[in-house]
Write a protein that binds this DNA or RNA. Structure first.
Lengths: 143, 143
DNA sequence: TGTATTTTGGTACTAAAGTATGAATAGGTT
DNA sequence: AACCTATTCATACTTTAGTACCAAAATACA
C-alpha cells in the first residue's frame, strides 16, 4: 500500500470511529437499556485501539527515518577539512582496497594516494588505515 | 527508568484516564451546560493520545528486539576451521590494532601473530587485513 | 590577476605487513 | 605410545604501508 492510501485510510477510520461514537451516544440517551457507561467503555476501547494503530504508523515512519542512520555528516567533513578526493580515498580504503588498487580505480598514481592517506590520517587523528575506517564510520563521514 | 516502572506508570495512566472520563460523563449528565459531545470529544483526544503513547512503548520494545541482530555464527567459524586464537586475533584487527599491539595484548610474539593472520587470510579467502575485517563481519564471525 | 586550496606527483626513506618454511611444545584423542 | 591439532616462535624474505619533504599543475575564488 502506498503511503497516501494509508494516510487516507487512517483519517477515514478516525472519522468513522467518531461518527459511530456520536451515534452511540445519542442512542444511549434515548434508549435507557444501553447504559452510558457501557458506551463510554466501548468508546474507550475503540479509540485506544485506534490510537495504538495510529501510533504504530507514526513510529513506523520514524523507524524508516532512523534506520538509514548511515547518513553522511557533511558538516563534520567540512569541519575536519577533508577534501572530496580524500573522502573518496577513505571510502575505497574502507572497501578493502590496497593503495595500488585505489590508484588504478581513480586513474592516478599510488604516490598521490599515499599523500591523500597521510593527510587523512592527520585529520582523522589515526595511525593506520584500519583505524581510519573505524573513525570514518564513527564520525559518519563514510557509509 | 526501569521497564517495570514504565509498565506501572502506563497502567496507572490508563486507570486515571478512565476515572476522569467517567467523572466527566456523570458531570455532563447533571450539569447541562457541559454538552455530551464536548465530553466525548475530550475523551476521544485523551484516549487516542494514551493509545499512541502505549503503542509507542510497544514499538520501542520491538525495535530493541530487532537491533541486536549481530549474533556470532559459531557454525560458520567451525566450518571454516578458524581456531579460538585466530578469532581473537581477527577481533583485535577489526579494532584497529597493529600486529605489534596485538602481540602485546595477548602476551605472545609478533611472529606468532603473523602466523595466525596468514592462516586467517587463507581461511577467509582475503589478501589484506582490511578485507579480513569486512569478511569477518559479513560472515558474522566477529562483532 | 592574484591568491588559496586542491590535486597531483616524485624521491627517499622507515616501518609495518605479509609470505614461506621449519620446528618445538602442549593437550586431547585413539 | 602414536597421532592430531592448536599454539607458539624464529629466520629470511618480499611487498605494502606510511612518513617527510618538496613542487608543479589545476581549480576555485575574490
Amino acid at each position: 500500500m502506498s503511503p497516501l492510501v494509508k494516510t487516507v485510510l487512517r483519517f477515514g477510520l478516525i472519522i468513522l470511529a467518531l461518527l459511530i461514537l456520536f451515534q452511540l451516544t445519542n442512542a444511549s440517551l434515548f434508549i435507557p437499556s444501553i447504559s452510558v457507561d457501557f458506551v463510554i467503555g466501548i468508546a474507550a476501547i475503540i479509540l485506544m485501539a485506534l490510537g495504538i494503530y495510529l501510533g504504530r504508523g507514526i513510529k513506523k515512519e520514524k523507524i524508516i527515518e532512523v534506520k538509514p542512520s548511515s547518513v553522511i555528516d557533511e558538516k563534520r567533513i567540512l569541519s575536519l577539512g577533508i577534501s572530496p578526493r580524500e573522502l573518496e580515498v577513505l571510502q575505497l580504503i574502507s572497501e578493502g582496497l590496497s593503495n595500488q588498487e585505489i590508484a588504478e580505480r581513480l586513474f592516478i598514481s599510488e604516490s598521490t594516494i599515499k599523500t591523500h592517506i597521510s593527510n587523512l590520517f592527520v585529520k582523522l587523528d589515526v595511525k593506520r588505515r584500519t583505524q581510519a575506517v573505524i573513525r570514518g564510520k564513527e564520525w559518519r563521514i563514510i557509509a
